[in-house]
Every structure is written in structure tokens, then in C-alpha cells.
Nucleic acid binder design. Structure first.
Lengths: 214, 214
DNA sequence: ATAATAATGTACTTGACAGTCTATTAAATA
DNA sequence: TATTTAATAGACTGTCAAGTACATTATTAT
């Protein structure tokens, strides 16, 4: 761990820009190439800093990895930023959620983060746990809350909110997402829109989604 | 590449057991730990062979990786082995497909293969392509054929077979699968059965699945 | 048997990379 | 301005792994 955050009164103070640069660079390179394929030298080089500086902030490559790969994931994976979803129009809500979720999981950095975290499954269980709680779980919880509201006011029927949320989200993780995770083919916005619509229709039929008057 | 398959008439012949041992060991270790975390020395050691022997079959670590990680995936990922699914009972068919698919994607070696392949997304595009065609794509195609048969005889309605297949399969790739990919939590057969049933119900309602008389 | 051929084993070379050491430089107080 | 404290730079070290070279051993054809 060994991250020195204290700013002592005497002596040369830390340059906050350097820390920021290290974190940003490391995050990007780890996500893009994975833990083992990136050297600390390379991170330092691209961050415009030397390795000693990196090691003065982070005591080891693992510590750097842990501290940076989870840096602000929660914010980056946030779905409904500012969006107020109206449970009286569940279909519209799902439009928003579906499109946002899909563009989220099509992003290169998000795909990279998943690849990188998956690849350290047995090796860094704590990191995987932290990632899970701050990314997939948060998104799921957010959608669950929306469905709870829908069920509450009766715009959705015969559903368990958490199950339906899992279903709606997972519907976007099929063949297309596997291709994306494997780095095959580029995202096709038109196809993705169709995907969202297809999945909304499924949920709509099964859970009897209805718009209610204001 | 440099895999010498020819068995010349003169000289010491290859020991087929050694090749088999190398391939098996490499496949297991690569799937379990990933490409970068496993050394050729380790593979050779566990295969009961020396590195020179490995290099006499495979010219490089990459060649070994490519040749072994895809070794018989098609067979291993096969879904309906011998099962004859009756499109007149679509719900039963989906029971079989869902359970088999779920136990497939819960297997450690299958999870490992996905992690390993995902992690070499940009690095070995050809491998990723080959994997995609022989595993996820094949499974999808298999389910698509079943749905086509259902649509044909009228036990399923308002569906595009390929879309519905993607939907049904992807429904099993939600939170639970992400946890598994991250190495968190152990598989829970009871929970998994519930998951399959939940997903069948969704498809059943949306596509009006009906059992037809024989 | 013996020569020919090729697989296997041992030891080596090379390079890369994690992590450290020491000197220098920048800032902040007195 | 002098002194102190710590950040930074660049060179250095030790380890580990990929790939190679050469010696040896096993097998087949003559």
C-alpha cells in the first residue's frame, strides 16, 4: 500500500500533478493492456516521471495496480447521472437505461477494465470484489430501484425487481458483447439501438409494462 | 507455428504421448493462469518433458498457446451432445439447453478459457476469432436451430430465431456470471436452477411458447 | 552391428523488468 | 540566505523467463 498522502510542513511538497498523471496513465495502460503486459518503466515514461517517483507514491506494482484500476470506477460506471427516470413511463425509462448501459459497455476503457479484472480473478480476489461492488453491482442496484418504483405504482407486473433488473441488463451481454470483449468487430450504433428495442419488447411483454397517466 | 507433424521414415520417431501431455498440460495451465503468468519451463515441468522438447514441437510460446488453447474447444463447448430436442415441447427443450449452458459456463476450465481469451483481445486477434467461431458462435447457432424448428411448427410465435437464441443465452450471463468470471462465490445449483426457470418464463411469455400434441 | 537421423536433455545466453541506491534538486521555514 | 526535509532522476542489481546450442540417446534402415 504505502501511499504517502500526508503533506508534512517541512521539505519539498508533492507535486499533485505528478500523482494525477501517474494514476491516469497507469489506469489507462492497465485497462488497455492488462497487468502483466505493462511495465512500471513504461507507466513512468508515459506519465513523464521516473520509476522512483512512482515507487515513492506506491510501494509496489501491485499497489499501483490496486489503487489505480479502481480509481473512480464508481463514477465512470454510473448510469443515470442526473437522469430522472419516471416509473410511470417504464418503456421510456428502459430506453434510457438500455442505451446508456450499452454505450457504457461498448467503451474501450470499460471493456479493458473488465478484461483486466477478469484476468486477475484468482490472483487479486480483493480487487475483484471491490470492482464488483463498485461497478456491476451498483448498476444492477440502480436498475433494481427503478423497477421497484415501477412495481410500486403498477406500471410493471409479476416481477421481482432484482431479477428483472438482472434480466434486462444481461440481455445486452450476448453475442455482441462477447465479440466486443474479444476485440472483434466495431460497435454499430444502429444495430445497438435495435438490440435495446428488442430487449425492451421482451421485458415489456413478459412483465406487462404500461404507461400510466401523470 | 513450426509444428512438425511429419513422421519421417528414418530416425527416432516422436513419442505421441509427450505431445499429448504437452498439449493437455499447456491447455490447462494457460486456461487456469493465463498466457503471461505461465512459463514454458513450468509447462514442460508439469508435462514431464523438457523445454527443448516443447520447442521441437512448437517454435514459440505463442505457437504453443495458439495450438493448445483452442485444442478441442468445439467439442468441449458442444451443448446438445446426443440430446434430441423436441420442438413440440419448447419449454422442455429450453430446460435442457438452459441447464447445459449454465453448467458449461460455470465450469472452471470454461471460465478460465474465457478469461484467457478476453485478455488477449487486441494481441492475438486471430485466436480470438477462432475461439469465437468455435465456441460462442456454435452454441448460439445450435440454439438458433432449435428455435427455428419451434417457429416452423408453431410452438413459438413472433420471434426471430437468432435474436431469441441470443436473448435466451444472454439471460444467463448476468450478475451471477460476472461474479463467476471474477472468481467470486461458488456455484449454487439450486440458485442456478431458479435462474434457468426464471429465464424460460420470460421467453415463454414473450414468445408465447406452447406445447403441441405429438 | 552400424550408420543415419532426429528427438530429448543440460546448460547457456540474452533481455526485460521489479525494485533499490545514491546523488541532486526543489521548496519551505527560520 | 542558510538549513532542513523530502521529492526526483538516473544508474544499478538480481531474478526470471524465452529461446538456443550442443551433447546424448533412441530408433529405424541397411
Amino acid at each position: 500500500m504505502t501511499l504517502k498522502t500526508s503533506t508534512p510542513s517541512r521539505g519539498r511538497p508533492r507535486d499533485p500533478k505528478k500523482l494525477e498523471s501517474i494514476v491516469q496513465t497507469a489506469k489507462q495502460l492497465f485497462s488497455e493492456h492488462g497487468f502483466e503486459r505493462i511495465s512500471v518503466d513504461e507507466i513512468a515514461r508515459q506519465a513523464g516521471v521516473t520509476k522512483a517517483t512512482v515507487y515513492s507514491y506506491f510501494g509496489s506494482k501491485e499497489a499501483l495496480f490496486g489503487a489505480t484500476v479502481l480509481h473512480k470506477v464508481r463514477e465512470e460506471f454510473a448510469l443515470g447521472e442526473g437522469q430522472t427516470l419516471d416509473p410511470r413511463s417504464p418503456e421510456e425509462g428502459l430506453q434510457v437505461i438500455g442505451k446508456q448501459f450499452l454505450s457504457l459497455i461498448r467503451r474501450d476503457d470499460v471493456l479493458g477494465a473488465h478484461r483486466t479484472l477478469f484476468s486477475c480473478a484468482g490472483v487479486h480476489p480483493d480487487l475483484c470484489e471491490a470492482f464488483f461492488r463498485s461497478a456491476p453491482f451498483m448498476v444492477h442496484a440502480e436498475v433494481t430501484r427503478f423497477f421497484e418504483a415501477c412495481i410500486e405504482i403498477g406500471s410493471m407486473k409479476n416481477a421481482i425487481a432484482a431479477d428483472a433488473a438482472d434480466q434486462f441488463l444481461s440481455l445486452h451481454l450476448g453475442i455482441g458483447h462477447i465479440k466486443a470483449m474479444l476485440g472483434l468487430g466495431k460497435p454499430d450504433p444502429a444495430e445497438d439501438d435495435r438490440l435495446v428495442q428488442r430487449n425492451i419488447n421482451l421485458i415489456k411483454q413478459a412483465y406487462d409494462l404500461k404507461s400510466l397517466p401523470a
